[in-house]
């Protein structure tokens, strides 16, 4: 298999991987908590793409029985990802709820500012303790 063929044969995977990496980058590099959650979402959705790509069969059709024998794409990844999407939303919901509470408690949702406040608190504790 030549290089070009190879890339062609795997392009979908590679695309989802690049998206995945971007999502991960947002999570670890951004200080804004909401943006982190957005990144996490991106990360997860690209994992879904990877799965769905795995399930694709060239020339196949959506796995719905029409009566005549056909080539189907693999339905199992679809099933898994349906579940995973819901899990992803659930995580997002909890994460956002936490952010709202953090905003109430700290007044900001920037990681570094929160860190500064917590440090100050810790020093206070250390002095009194």
């Amino acid at each position: 298999m030549t290089g070009i063929d190879f890339i062609l044969a795997h392009y979908n995977y590679s695309a989802s991987i690049i998206l995945m990496a971007l999502g991960f980058y947002i999570v670890i590099s951004r200080g804004n908590l909401i943006k982190k959650i957005v990144g996490l979402n991106l990360f997860q959705v690209s994992v879904f793409m990877l799965y769905i790509s795995m399930g694709k069969v060239s020339g196949g059709t959506a796995p719905i029985l029409t009566g005549k024998p056909e080539l189907f794409s693999n339905p199992l990844p679809h099933v898994l990802i349906l579940t995973a999407i819901v899990v992803g939303v659930a995580t997002t919901a909890i994460g956002l709820a936490l952010i709202v509470r953090i905003k109430d408690a700290y007044g900001v949702i920037e990681e570094d500012e929160i860190l500064v406040m917590d440090r100050a608190r810790e020093q206070l504790d250390a002095r009194s303790g």
Binding site: L40, V47, L98, I99
Partner: peptide, 20 residues
Amino acid sequence: LTAAFTYLLLGTIGATFYVI
């Protein structure tokens, strides 16, 4: 709250890694 949030981020990353 922040502890839970960090836990959520890392926990979700962990779970997603597992899924990958």
